[in-house]
Amino acid sequence: METLWLTVLGVLTVGYFALAGFDYGSGLLLALPRRYVSSHRKRDETYRLVTPFFLGNEVWLVAAIGVLFAAFPRLEGELLSGAHSTFTLLLAGLVLFMAAVQLRLWWWLVFTGALMVSVGWGLFLAHLLHAPWPVALVMPVLFAVHGWVFQTRRWKLFPVTALLCALPIPLAFSSIDVTGLMAHDDTLGLLAWVAVPIIPLVVLAQWSIVAISSR
């Protein structure tokens, strides 16, 4: 059970960061002069490219937190409340980023939202590793690189940068010993019947969204 649920949590978290990385990364790149993001000149193009993925990434985060709550109840509260202000920053950034992209508000608002989210995840990474705060800068840098690879359509590099964005948080998380923090097998067994078939279903459906919208 422990391995199964750590895997489920890992898959959801990796899914979120792999999908969200180029979203936030694209937002961070808005601050660069256009000529550095070589293949196109207009900000509209940046937004147009991320459109099909837009509703797709946050659902992975929500699912991950749901699994964290139900399968690791003794860990979830301590983990989140232990980094209270980091999550305030991160979630405020998330609200700002999503609203600003959808409304096509000023580019610097999109940029600020993306920066808050990525620095927030960086601070959380530093918190998990008990590392000094400059470690936080790792996440915005990785997201920006991933965003650049996405925007310039360097598809060969894409899986590499996706993994680089996706792995730091789950790897840092794996240093936590979850023994005794998990739910009872009665709860876990029940939820396994739901969680295991749903993940491939969502992957298939999200892949279809991208396939349909690029037709």
Binding site: L191, V194, V202
Partner: peptide, 26 residues
């Protein structure tokens, strides 16, 4: 109470919200 309260909450995120957003996207 995570063992009990968490079960319907996780069902909501997985069965409902996770799928709902995806179907809506499609």
């Amino acid at each position: 109470a995570g063992d009990v309260f968490g079960a319907p909450l996780a069902m909501e995120t997985l069965v409902a919200f996770f799928l709902e957003s995806t179907f809506l996207g499609l």
